[in-house]
Nucleic acid binder design. Structure first.
Lengths: 234, 234
DNA sequence: GAACCGCTTTACAGTCGATTTACAGACAAT
DNA sequence: ATTGTCTGTAAATCGACTGTAAAGCGGTTC
């Protein structure tokens, strides 16, 4: 059963939510203020975050932003008393998956939780070791190890891009898709060279020659493709 | 850009929504009543459905149910004046991804649309593997694989032409039709040899002898035809 | 607050695919 | 066989796309 983290300072709402989730069979974690919430959100492992925006010490937007840096895909539902459209838009644009205005009933909460979890990818057996000709990338340690024993550190973005490309190895990925999936932005690409820069940096760290790449291939007019080591025609 | 289907009977809301979506760069489809809506929802290809619940002839729940039988994953956002929790729960439990209560602003609509699309799986290409005597073309990898194991890269245009010809295999396609459907131009052909050049390049990469073609046949005075026989679409 | 760090944007040059041009060979009709 | 039309393709041109250096921008560290 999925684990759900609830960050909410109002005790009665918090316990109500936790009760409803537990009754539905979910495992739960919680924090009652922003500071603890951020701590837990960044360290614990969970499948969904229910996040209040107005919290003591650290506000919900800050937590959401921090979480997104580290785990760009974990689903988040914002729970807030602020019903202003501007806040809802802000929350959704920061990468929240849904936004519920208090007060809400237990059944609607469960329905939304189920809806979000239903379409979120299974917690992937997180690929954290990516082999490539000449070495391997260890996402748990944020580093690349080469056959000669040398290492290079990887930044968060670089790892996110590498992970997405590797997860879709053997398929040409458009810059737009990368922006959508990794950055969680919905803009038309072509306006920025950011992705190219990250690929360039990745290639440097993977020791992949851009003029004749063996790991991250350029697909002109489309995007990039992580080369599969053994690709068999079916 | 993703295509969004809007099923909504209130003309002013419908046009408002369509305008907002188009302004954001989405392709749109729409239906103004339940009967048409169900028809379109089951037949057309789209990436997201915005669905009103109260519709003439056939209600939104029925459409949603029918759509889910056929395509369990296509994301759906319900637009409804009914703010009752029971309705929201019912909609979400039927497999909707979100539920917006009218009235809503354009920016919140776009924020929710983006949030839902961000996470939905990419629409798979209609055909990504085209077999022909002697090898196959893999559109996901932008390459041709021959029986002997060698490969050729395909450009975007070449793939577009090949895909269109293969999708209409066995039918002679005029240059004008190719220009219209692939280039999205409405010019009379004959003024350019562009298509011939792309066909020539394709034949070279498919190892198809132009003087005795087995894959892309020349239909004199008409255009070209992809030969049917063993063409697998996946 | 100065230095640093990672991410993003800007700018630009080289590369490569798309298109046009030009022409020779192929085909059909007379 | 002759003629006019249509197709195949080599070569030149054009323009879009990519790689990358360098600068800008927040944010964090010392």
């Amino acid at each position: 059963m999925p684990t759900i983290l609830v960050i909410e300072d109002d005790a009665s709402i918090r316990t109500g939510v936790l009760d409803a989730l537990q009754a539905a069979g979910y495992d739960t974690l919680f924090a009652a203020n922003g500071r603890d919430g951020q701590e837990v959100a960044l360290r614990a492992t969970f499948d969904l975050l229910l996040l209040d925006l107005v919290l003591p010490h650290v506000d919900g937007f800050t937590i959401l932003k921090a979480l997104r840096e580290q785990r760009p895909v974990t689903p988040v539902i914002i729970l807030s008393a602020m019903g202003q459209e501007a806040d809802r838009v802000k929350g959704l644009n920061l990468g929240a998956d849904d936004y519920m205005v208090k007060p809400f009933g237990a059944r609607e909460l469960l329905a939304r939780v189920n809806a979000v979890l239903r379409r979120s990818p299974e917690r992937p057996a997180e690929v954290n070791l990516i082999a490539f000709p000449g070495g391997e990338a260890d996402l748990a340690r944020c580093e690349v190890r080469h056959a000669d024993g040398t290492r290079e550190e990887l930044s968060q973005r670089e790892m996110a891009v590498l992970q997405y490309l590797a997860a879709n190895a053997g398929r040409a990925i458009s810059r737009e898709e990368i922006l959508t999936r990794v950055w969680r932005l919905t803009v038309s690409a072509g306006a920025t060279r950011t992705i190219d820069m990250h690929v360039a940096n990745l290639r440097a760290k993977l020791r992949d020659d851009p003029t004749d790449p063996r790991v991250v291939l350029t697909v002109r007019g489309k995007g990039y493709m992580f080369k599969t080591s053994s690709c068999h025609a079916t």
